[in-house]
Design a protein around this nucleic acid. Structure first.
Lengths: 182, 182
DNA sequence: AATATATGAATGAACG
DNA sequence: CGTTCATTCATATATT
């Protein structure tokens, strides 16, 4: 049966290992991060070891193989797991998305997004979230380009530096409302 | 920065990443093995490093710095740097918030928020608004995910098409909420 | 290979 | 509260 072996993970992450249960996406993500930390640690340790070996090599005049079993171990696991792969739209999908963006520019409603994603799923793996993100990014970056392009430089805080502060000031607006719902 | 939801696992393990769904025990087991490997590698590397260092130390009579690779690794991954416009919760803060969220699920009262923010201020710059927003976002996004998860995921079968671009794609976290609201 | 850029995704904050 | 915006992060791709 499922071994109840809980693995000792860095407490930094606060991961909760659910024994014998299913995991949610959320937990999955947390786990991925955990593994990511290990991956980073491993990489750094490998680097240190190599450096040390190189030193020793220089001192003793001995030669050592550059291929460590650890390297192969790391490579075998590599980024297979720890790295997150992201959706890459196919050419066809991109074309359609682009066309849609130029047509009915505004932000597509959820219903619309669902339709779009269903249509695009014919041309490759895709989810509604992908479509949603795509439009979000597209809009944001178009806007940013227009702003940035019209200006000589990005770092221009000539007159009104306080404009940044304005946004932050709206801070306590909602907090005055006592959340008695709990 | 963070990421998606569905994770690509080594196919060799036979794990099937279910889109937007929960994990099975089997998948969990695979994860345990994965982490196990990393843990083992880390231990071995630490041992090797220590041994090497000791040797080198004995040979050269030099002392070596006590800079812990583990610390630096964890730090490098964690909070990159604190100087940013918008609040970025530290690892510790996130842990606590997450724990609180899972415990007393409801929306914290204004009073509670104040307490929390005071406690969290020990672990980094934070305001009550930050806490408030965090809970708001956390709730909203959790709910959205659940809605997406309940969606039984349409089978998207890419028959042929121009599957040249077809790369292993993992995408999910639906925002599918029938646009019945607006 | 190493660096630069493009871009999908995550998230704090803001809006209605 | 649900949705949207703006910014940032991480990775895929392009370039040298």
């Amino acid at each position: 049966g499922r071994s109840p072996t809980t693995i000792r993970l860095p407490e930094a992450e606060g991961l909760v290992a659910v024994r014998g249960q299913v995991m949610t996406d959320e937990q999955m993500e947390t786990l991925r991060r955990q593994i990511s930390v290990y991956a980073t640690i491993c990489q750094q340790l490998v680097e240190m070891h190599k450096a040390t070996m190189a030193q020793q090599h220089a001192l003793s005049g001995l030669k050592y193989g550059h291929t460590s079993p650890l390297d192969s171990a790391l490579n075998s696991m590599g980024q297979k797991f720890a790295s997150r792969q992201r959706w890459t739209p196919s050419q066809t999908q991109l074309q359609i998305l682009e066309k849609l963006f130029q047509q009915g520019n505004g932000a597509p409603s959820k219903q619309r997004i669902k339709e779009i994603s269903i249509e695009l799923s014919q041309y490759g793996q895709i989810s509604e979230t992908n479509v949603y993100n795509w439009f979000q990014n597209r809009r944001a970056r178009t806007k940013r380009k227009q702003q940035g392009g019209s200006n000589t430089g990005e770092l221009e805080f000539d007159t009104d530096v306080d404009s940044q502060e304005e946004k932050r000031v709206c801070a306590d607006r909602d907090l005055s409302n006592d959340g008695t719902t709990s």
